[in-house]
């Protein structure tokens, strides 16, 4: 015979303190881990454990970034990439939501289009770039179109599946109260798919940054992707790292914006309510 005792844990004894400590520890870990790694890198580069030509010390990279900011080079690169990203994303997103909704609501459209779209889905978008370059020539348009294409495919699949997952009781209630057409889209469909749509938006974000950088590698003469590629051909590792870190930051910031929007626009999503409760 053994006695099992279920007793208060630290979190029950001092919930407020526990929550504060957890928050503080999260901040320390979130900032401390990358800082420690940077420090390790810095020391390794300076001592010569790693080859500073390939892995220049973070401070050297930071210095280079300072120069690039001062000359305006970094800003014009970021702007070139961001502009194409925003325009391409917006186009792909609108087309994706429209197509996904159409496929979700119309059996005919679905029968006609889904097999073809699904087949095209698996083609790597970058493989189409030469074709676009052939048709539209060098310049920004192929890049924007390719980003739009990448975003389009992620979004229509997400929207279609989200519409299929809508609980029948919601559509039935809409039917009973004669909520139809655009009203139905606005009051029922859009809110119902929103939580899943935001997941799609984040995935598409990753795809779009990848396509933007990949396109800039091979065509054009500006943008972060171009800068990274160009630094390689000039053997300028410092500049290359500035480019890589800038892309990472760009992705991070865009993701943060999407997360923030999700918490404001879809507060009823299960993950949001759980977050609010904890």
């Amino acid at each position: 015979m053994k006695t099992i005792a279920i007793e208060p844990r630290p979190i029950e004894l001092d919930p407020d303190g526990f929550a504060r400590r957890r928050k503080r520890n999260n901040v320390i870990l979130g900032l401390g881990t990358p800082l420690m790694l940077l420090l390790l890198w810095e020391v390794s580069a300076r001592v010569g454990i790693v080859d500073a030509r390939f892995f220049p010390a973070p401070t050297t990279i930071f210095e280079e970034a300072g120069k690039m900011v001062a000359s305006g080079l970094l800003f014009s690169d970021v702007w070139a990439t961001l502009r194409a990203l925003l325009i391409g994303y917006a186009l792909g997103f609108i087309a994706g939501v429209a197509t996904g909704t159409l496929l979700g609501l119309s059996r005919v459209a679905r029968a006609a289009l889904e097999p073809m779209l699904s087949a095209i889905y698996t083609i790597p978008k970058l493989a189409i770039l030469p074709l676009l370059l052939l048709i539209f020539g060098l310049g920004e348009l192929p890049k924007i179109l390719l980003i739009a294409l990448g975003v389009f495919f992620v979004i229509w699949v997400t929207v279609l599946e989200a519409i299929e997952d809508i609980q029948p009781t919601y559509t039935e209630a809409a039917h009973i109260f004669h909520i139809n057409g655009i009203q139905r889209f606005r009051h029922i469909l859009l809110p119902a798919i929103l939580p899943m749509l935001f997941t799609g938006i984040r995935i598409a974000l990753g795809t779009s940054v990848l396509i933007a950088v990949g396109t800039e590698f091979v065509s054009g003469d500006e943008g972060i992707g171009y800068r990274i590629w160009h630094s390689w051909s000039l053997f300028q590792a410092d500049q290359m790292y500035v480019g890589i870190v800038t892309v990472a930051l760009l992705g991070f910031l865009l993701t943060a914006v999407v997360k923030f929007l999700a918490s404001k626009l879809a507060p009823w999503a299960p993950r949001e309510t759980r977050r609010a409760a904890s």
Binding site: K2, T3, I4, I6, E7, P8, R9, I11, E12, L13
Partner: peptide
């Protein structure tokens, strides 16, 4: 888990 007090179970 309780905030205070305890639950004891005799496991055999």
């Amino acid at each position: 888990y309780p905030t205070s007090g305890s639950v004891k179970i005799q496991a055999s």
